[in-house]
Write a protein that binds this DNA or RNA. Structure first.
Lengths: 142, 142
DNA sequence: CTTGAAGCTCTAGCGACTAGAGCTTTTACA
DNA sequence: TGTAAAAGCTCTAGTCGCTAGAGCTTCAAG
């Protein structure tokens, strides 16, 4: 019979915490494995591979729903167009976020630089926070 | 008697949703205002100013706990050194995040660019996601 | 055969809101 | 003054992706 892995083993192999693996099962991302006589999960190769896929996708910032779609597309051998669409869409979001964070970084460094490090004479940070007009930057939501 | 604002008015003046204002009160960020005969909140200038401070700080990415500290420091007239420490610390975190997102953007654009836009012949995205070794990038947690 | 590690389920918490149900009060207009 | 819509109220639950803990059972090694 084929090799099986206990949940702790799978956790080590994929650098995932045990409760996280159970969580993925709970939300339907990782299929429920068989259980042994004592009700413990016994995983197979297929689970290991799916879990690696999930973890790599997470490291790349994909959300669990996106990952679910990607896994389904992998299964279905269907059009790679949809895969590309998801990936590009995610990339766009990341680029947006980078742009927003860069603006934020600008605004913050100006805020912080307004008073030299040692001087105790009153610093402007609180005033700028209190009054947006003292701040040269537009900010966005999200 | 001094002007007061209903919650909806305050919301408009500060571009904040009404439930968000109530939430700030609930977590102790914004002091509970007096109530009128019909139990409705009636805010004063001081609330308006605190709320503006909170919102501007949020736009700059400060967390509610940091904002609570900043408000307390504003109140106490205490050392601006602590204010600077909080702001610099936040700036450091933002810079970290920018760096991480930039790496992510790198990895993702490579992932996406592996197959030209129109061609249907099988694209590599799924394979890379399934096997981190096919990916040139290290990824971090967080 | 014992003991300690690993497994199990279930519930709650994080941060910063947001949405909705089901009510009461205020406001504007006829 | 009557009425209806808008705005207010409280309370609960949901978002996302986990993480922590309680209190139990099962497994593996010596």
């Amino acid at each position: 019979m084929a090799t099986t892995y206990a949940i702790g083993k799978l956790a080590k192999l994929t650098d995932t915490k045990v409760p996280t693996i159970r969580y993925y099962e709970q939300v339907g991302l990782l299929p429920a494995p068989e259980r042994n006589a004592g009700n413990q999960r016994r995983y197979r190769e297929v689970h290991l591979q799916k879990l690696r896929f999930i973890r790599h996708s997470r490291q790349l910032g994909f959300g669990l729903e996106e990952i679910a779609s990607l896994l389904a597309l992998q299964e279905s051998q269907a059009d790679s167009g949809e895969v590309q669409r998801i990936a590009r869409n995610h990339l766009d979001e990341v680029r947006d976020k980078v742009a927003r964070l860069n603006k934020l970084e600008q605004a913050l460094s100006q805020l912080v630089s307004c008073c030299g490090s040692g001087q105790p004479h009153d610093c402007q940070i609180l005033s700028v926070l209190a009054d947006h007009n003292l701040c040269q930057h537009e900010h966005e939501g999200r």
